[in-house]
């Protein structure tokens, strides 16, 4: 659905997006993570044919970025939720959707059917004739998502869909995205909410001007952050930690509550040795498990390493 090669955007001397190469498949939910100013919105704007690229190439929804005719085709086939909802407050939810459906030159009957289906899905059908100005932030965000979907796009770009929403409204919007995922829609989700990305996305890319990593969340978690084994003990002590360190010949042991956390490279080989070392040091093991690093750890590691680069 998306194929980008060396996509770059410069504003004068500032490089906003540097040499991005990525693929997003049909029906995939792809999360684009990065701190503020990392280039996420610029990337979406390039892929959505809203701004030009400085170099590189990209094919979106079957059309190549570059010519005005193809870019019109791209905008026909995609839906975009910008980081600001940008609704017409004085008009109703129905009128907002109707206007955008007509701009996409939809057949009036299909448009009515789509609006009814989408507002129904968003639990807003009963309020369809109320001015949008009377809606809460979460409801407005849902109308904006419906607007991006009104013409049945094959690809949906969502730019920070839960930013600035209270937890309840954010949950409401996440549920809508999960519904869309069930419908097998291709979604490109810009977010800096790692929990959201972890729960919703099939794959994520971590961006800080350059694409630092890309892959399924699990692969990133196992590939970019240290693996650790957690040993829950009846009781911990400094002496026990020192003895375990000495026996395993490592400094990678720390205490967290009633658990010892031990850095490992190969858990299958090292876990029996860890258990032996703890028992030999006088510890009583209640539980031994593998600790999966969170996406947050992977993200922070990559983003901070990138910051440290010259």
């Amino acid at each position: 659905m998306i194929h980008a090669e060396g996509l770059t955007k410069r504003f004068g001397s500032l490089t906003a997006v540097d040499q991005i190469t990525l693929d997003v498949g049909d029906g995939e939910v792809f999360g684009f993570l990065g701190p503020n100013g990392a280039g996420k919105t610029t990337t979406v704007r390039m892929l959505a044919a809203l701004i030009s690229r400085t170099s590189g190439r990209a094919e979106v929804a079957g059309y190549e970025l570059g010519s005005e005719a193809d870019e019109l085709k791209i905008r026909e086939r995609i839906g975009v939720l910008p980081d600001n909802v940008g609704l017409y407050d004085s008009t109703s939810a129905y009128q907002n959707l109707e206007y955008f459906g007509r701009l996409h030159r939809m057949d009036p009957t299909a448009l009515r059917t789509n609006i009814e289906r989408l507002l129904g899905m968003m639990d807003l059908w009963e309020k369809k004739d109320l001015p949008v100005s009377t809606f809460s932030k979460g409801m407005k965000q849902k109308v904006a998502i419906a607007r991006a979907l009104v013409h049945d796009p094959v690809l949906l770009f969502l730019d920070e869909p839960t930013a600035n929403l209270d937890p309840e409204a954010a949950k409401m919007v996440r549920e809508v995205i999960l519904e869309l995922k069930k419908e097998n829609r291709t979604i490109f989700l810009n977010t800096h909410n790692l929990d959201e990305a972890q729960r919703i996305c099939d794959r994520v890319g971590i961006l800080r001007t350059r694409l630092l990593a890309v892959g399924p969340v699990e692969t990133l978690r196992s590939g970019f952050a240290r693996k650790r084994t957690a040993v829950r003990l009846e009781r911990t002590s400094e002496a026990l930690v020192a003895a375990v360190k000495q026996r395993l010949r490592t400094d990678g042991v720390e205490v967290s509550g009633d658990r010892l956390l031990v850095d490992v490279d190969d858990p299958a080989r090292e876990n029996p040795e860890i258990a032996e070392a703890v028992v030999a040091a006088g510890g009583r093991i209640l539980e031994l498990s593998q600790v999966s690093p969170s996406l947050e750890e992977v993200y922070l590691k990559l983003v901070h390493e990138e910051t440290a680069l010259p």
Binding site: L72, R75, I78, V80, N84, V85, G86, L87, F100, L103
Partner: peptide
């Protein structure tokens, strides 16, 4: 000001 230009620009309109 109301930020409704970006959604409009995202439609297949020149």
């Amino acid at each position: 000001v109301e930020k409704s230009l970006e959604p409009l620009l995202s439609t297949p309109t020149t």
